[in-house]
Nucleic acid binder design. Sequence first.
RNA 1: GCGGGCGUCGCCAAGUGGUUAAGGCAGCGGCUUGUGGCGCCGCUAUUCGGGGGUUCGAAUCCCCUCGCUCGCCCCA
Length: 423
Amino acid sequence: MTNLKNLRGMVDLLPAQTLGWQKVETIALEHFSRAGLQEIRTPIIEQTELFLRGIGENTDVVGKEMYNFDDRGGRPCTLRPEGTASVARAILQHGLLNNGSQRLWYRGPMFRYERPQAGRQRQFHQIGVEFVGFASVMSDAEVISIAWEFLKEVGLSDLTLEINSLGSNEDRNIFKEKLKDWLNQRFDFLDEDSQRRINVNPLRILDSKNTSTKELLCEAPSLNDFLSKKSKTRFNYLQELLDNLNIPYKINNKLVRGLDYYSHTAFEITSEHLGSQATVCGGGRYDGLLSELGGPITPSIGWAIGMERLIILAGDKILQSKSPDVYVIHKGEKAEQLALNITCQLRSANLTTELDYSGSSFSKQFKRADKSLARWAIIIGEDEVSKGQLLMKKLRDNENKEGREEYIFLIEDLNQIINQLID
RNA sequence: GCGGGCGUCGCCAAGUGGUUAAGGCAGCGGCUUGUGGCGCCGCUAUUCGGGGGUUCGAAUCCCCUCGCUCGCCCCA
């Protein structure tokens, strides 16, 4: 074995997995097209400043998880830790909003320098949706429903949707101050992490997993009580819309997303089957992001799904590989060219075809044909070549284990025969 | 960044100081020189993540290191 290995947290997708990924990606493409979304692809490397301004310098993602480096020209660069900031940047840079609001989706690798564990890697893949330039609560509901229906279409169940409203920036700033006061009065009872966060990112303390802090927080002021009338009405209407769509949800007043740019709607879709990294989809409204990056005030909402987590939840079923329609068996020098020829013809006729060129005995080749789970075998030996014929045998007929059907036909009749025999 | 667990063939593993490192799956070959799914037979680790040390002797004990994994933090 070579001592060259992949970097920690970077994962190879082997042939046994890629089919499942392809299936999910195909479902996504179709699902999003039907919803009128267009795909956008942005570079995986950006100027570091984009993320500093977009995500927030005090977030963990920016503070300790980014892959930063200077390029040969000395420019500070970062491997993107998430997709939204890049999408926002591209929209502004190319003036896409001049053509109206944008309904977009993206997919691709993201990078965060963290300690890997179940459902968490340093290079991971997200598939995400961004509705840029939409203020209507209806867009919140539609964006959530696109995620929900997509996950259902992939076959996931036992999912929980949690929603919360972070209110407007003004609502949240008032609340932050009140919360800080309250926490400072109880400083000694907080866990170390939470103590550190009071001035940096007090909202995140609400989401603490520390048991004693959690208990203490039951009495804490709730963001909900600080929402303006307008924000409350908005949140209530979102719930009404979700009810109308029959999408079940739970309100979680402690739900605060980790990135600075969120306001109003925040949501997460979680599963109990993922271990401690339970979130499969996270998103929310980011009305302030584009203006933060120097663009116009642009109300927007989006989400991202972790592909690896999605694949874990989809389970083995989605990973099963496709078996060939036909397995081509041949023996003898004269049969080689014909076998290759027939294989290509079958593929032109849209049949999945596997060609055996081991040159081993017919018995061995049949064994492999059987193992491949092919439905049919085409056998080409010396006899067939000299007579201009092909022999075809049905392999997967559990009724007649002894006398499986065999057909002999002329090579020039190949196309007719395939149409008759195979579906 | 901090804690716990683990590293023996492609995969799953037995072995816990003493001659050639079990076994199963997968792979390859044969029984069967043109017919599969069962069965039987054979082959496949000079080596136990790597490096040092202790010992007459180490996969087994000690030290260091690397990696994996689970959890914390955080997030998808």
